[in-house]
Amino acid sequence: MTRLQAILDRRAILEILVRRDLRVRYARSILGYLWTIIDPLAMALIYFMIFVVIFKRSDAGHTPYFLFLIVGLLVWQWFSASITETGRALIMEQKLVRSTNLPREMWIIRVVIAKGIEFLLSLPILVVFTAWYVMGGEAHLNWRLLLFPVAVVQQFLMLVGFGLILAPVTVLVDDTTRVVRIIMRMMFYVTPIIYVIERAPDWLQTIFMFNPLAGLLEFYRAGFFEVPINWAAVAVSWVMTFGLIGFGLHLFGRLERAVLKEI
């Protein structure tokens, strides 16, 4: 708790770091922002072509399927970018980490916030497509849209938890980055981004439920689609989020000494 207080006391520094990240990313070119949008759009287009145009299975997810894809892919982009970057958070900034005695959890939190702001900046695409489908009468918004910001908070906590585990482990164990890259590739397909859990066979559904992203996406999508929420997945997801944060803080504290000697 005192650590949390120490981090809160240094909000201003956190802000400086996040601003710097965003400046480095966006200051150079206007394209910097466009990439944030082009990437998920291109992915959505690819999966739309494969599932709807080629396989004629627009029932893989909720309808309209393209909107379903967009929500999932934007969320995934924040998730995957944060996981990759937090793994390297301490190594990339080793000069800064070595010359300041800030609470070192900040190096992870700042990455998650910066990527989270990029996620928020990419939401206009979601707004545009939602408006398009709503006006076409194909989509109907509902009050559960209020769950969207809740999901943002949950994803932030979850990513900080993952980051607190990954960053010190990457410093101490070689090849972590490679292993994470492969796991992330698999994660994409075991996460209900391009399909809904209910499409999978029963035995797989049980396994999928333990993916914390499954419940998270339930909240993100609830406001856009008139389908019941899978509350079991949501519960698992919240339990895992707090588990990750708790374990992450514990592990980070344990490994901090060794990490500082190593970088």
Partner: peptide, 12 residues
């Protein structure tokens, strides 16, 4: 400190 420079664990 560890004496050897190469003390990183290697999964391989």
């Amino acid at each position: 400190f560890y004496r050897s420079r190469k003390r990183k664990l290697s999964i391989r």
